[in-house]
Nucleic acid binder design. Structure first.
Length: 545
RNA sequence: GGCCCUGUCGUCUAACGGUCAGGACACUGGUCUUUCAAGCCAGCAGCACGGGUUCGACUCCCGUCAGGGCCGCCA
């Protein structure tokens, strides 16, 4: 995935031809006229045009992996004088959420990664939100059905589940996936049943023999046995496209030249390649970046590592430090150097030199690097940073609103509101006592706090008092907890105190990231209490002899 | 289980057939300092294993092993 400017290294011979023709067609689309009409000088410039994109799905908190992939896409586009596009992949109607989309915009802006085209800034290839492009996908899917590259499938969910179950049990591991049942339905009959309104999806008809070979900029030729790739759903029964269809159609229509994405997509590469082929389109350059990892090498996840960009922002990581650190995951600017600015990154970045080993996200090193960046600031600059987030008027106003009627001298404010400004909390003896829910063991309380977090609060994206309250009450309802029994441990967990402003307002002001961190920490504290003989607990059944 | 990807200090990485395998985080010791940091200096620690190819392999090929990803009408 590179402009001709940087087209050395892995780009030689055969592949080069593919790439340049790809650029030419992208250029034609970009200029909005045929390539032949393009003026020569402009044509030369356009032929070099690199277009990359980040295509997050707005289904949760803004993810550090999104920032990682966005950074590399951004740098590659900038380095080649091309464009970087933000596209929202919200084709999952259940999970997509406007709050999440907003947070993604904010987080990327915070990092300083700006896009040339996107839902918020517009652009010549919009709309940039897939939910607003349904008609485009439908048309394209029909085109495939018409040519026999896709077909309607009427299989019920039940049948698919049964099929999956049977395959699992029979251990026909090589034939996992859809069995192509509806491929046998004659087109005319399929047409009739669709017209009659029978629920169905549209599936891609994968070739039943041969192999699909796709080249990856970093990994060379990737080969897949077609018989092992099942018929992927292209259009869901709700009429929305799946990622696979929308992604391919949009990348083509938006003139994306380099698809730089995470490694987890490699296994769907053959499906994507088949789609391009079925449409008669040239393939973009594919480049699969390694996945960020937890300490145990598994794909980075919120259970084992902070992954929300909101966490890093709230914890006081500087965006430039985070970016610098992220750039180091898979790439090195020089043998003995690792601190550099975004501009330096852009200037020196070479996609082909990205390393492939899955980098363990080392929070400790990030933190060290952040310290370096803090020390590089002048004191007034540091002040500005603090005033930008943690000590912004906006935040102070919120805290002050809650402290207002609860202090009698101004100097009390700092102590009263200290938990709004620190990161980790220390739970003193009194707090530890109140951390344990009535009639419960520390262990039980810990479990309840964790479940409240993971099963309820984590899913909540609109972090507002009313929504928090609603969520917590619903949790109590579902689990049989008395709200009064559970809310005190939560209060102590997130504030370290038993006497605080109203819980939900307090949690809202603290923010989700802080609450999440403290709830976790509280659970750990509770577990440790059990280990050390349960000092602060009151009234736990099983501590009585 | 099947397919695919990956494999240099504990961690992030440099090396692109010939180096004492370099740097950084962490760790250890020292230095500076009223303290704590920061800084500086030093130390510890690695080419997963086995075959090839080659005058010569961390570098190329094959195999083994290990780790990871995917196997949804989620992306």
């Amino acid at each position: 995935m590179r402009g001709s400017k940087g087209a050395h290294g892995p780009w030689r011979s055969g592949r080069k031809a593919l790439v340049s023709s790809r650029f030419a067609s992208a250029a034609a689309r970009l200029s909005g006229r045929g390539e032949s009409e393009t003026r020569r000088s402009e044509g030369a410039r356009m032929a070099d045009m690199v277009r990359t994109r980040i295509a997050p799905s707005p289904t949760g908190d803004p993810h550090v992996g999104t920032a990682y992939v966005a950074l590399f896409n951004y740098a590659w586009a900038r380095k080649n004088g091309g464009q970087f596009i933000l596209r929202i992949e919200d084709t999952d109607r259940e999970r997509s959420n406007p709050a999440s989309e907003r947070m993604i915009f904010e987080a990327l802006h915070w990092l300083g990664l700006s896009w040339d085209e996107g839902p918020d800034v517009g652009g010549p290839f919009g709309p940039y939100r897939q939910s607003e492009r349904s008609e485009i996908y439908r048309e394209h899917a029909e085109r495939l059905v018409a040519t026999g590259s896709a077909y309607p499938c009427f299989c019920t969910k039940e049948r698919l589940e049964a099929l999956r179950e049977e395959q699992r049990r029979a251990k026909v591991a090589h034939a996992l996936g859809y069995d192509g049942h509806c491929r046998a339905v004659p087109p005319a009959e399929g047409q009739r049943r669709r017209a009659a309104g029978e629920p169905h999806v549209i599936r891609l008809a994968m070739p039943r023999e041969g192999e699909t070979v796709v080249s990856d900029l970093l990994r060379g030729e990737l080969r897949f046995d077609n018989t092992l790739v099942d018929d992927q759903v292209l259009i869901k029964s709700d009429g929305y496209p799946t990622y696979h269809l929308a992604n391919v159609v949009d990348d083509h229509l938006m003139g994306i030249t380099h698809v730089i994405r995470a490694e987890e997509w490699i296994s769907s590469l053959p499906k994507h390649a088949m789609l391009y082929r079925a449409f008669g389109w040239d393939l973009p350059v594919f480049c699969h970046l390694p996945l960020l990892r937890n300490t145990d090498k598994s794909k980075i996840s919120k259970r084992k590592n902070p992954v929300s960009l909101n966490y890093y922002r709230r914890a006081g990581y500087l965006p430039e430090a985070l970016l610098n650190f992220l750039a180091l995951q898979g790439w090195a600017i020089a043998e003995d150097r690792e601190e550099f600015t975004l501009d330096e990154f852009i200037a020196t970045f070479e996609l082909s030199k990205v390393t492939l080993g899955g980098p363990v996200f080392d929070l400790e090193k990030l933190t060290w690097m952040n310290g370096k960046y803090i020390r590089k600031l002048t004191v007034p600059q540091l002040l500005d940073r603090l005033r930008g987030d943690l000590l912004s008027d906006e935040y102070l106003l919120k805290v002050l609103t809650l402290a207002h009627e609860r202090i009698e001298r101004l100097e009390e404010f700092v102590e009263y509101a200290s938990f709004f400004f620190v990161g980790e909390l220390e739970y003193d003896a009194e707090a530890r006592g109140k951390l344990v829910a009535k009639k419960c063991t520390p262990e039980q309380t810990a479990l309840a706090l964790e479940r409240l977090l993971e099963e309820s609060l984590d899913q909540l994206l609109e972090w507002e008092p009313a929504r928090i309250e609603e969520t917590m009450r619903a949790y109590c309802e579902a689990t049989g907890w008395k709200t009064s029994d559970l809310f005190m441990p939560v209060r102590v967990a997130v504030t370290g105190k038993a006497a605080t402003p109203p819980l939900f307002e307090t949690m809202a002001v603290l923010g989700k990231e802080i609450c999440r961190r403290r709830l976790r920490r509280a659970a750990e504290t509770l577990r440790a209490m059990k280990a050390e003989g349960n000092p602060g607990a009151h009234g736990g059944e099983d501590e009585k002899p």
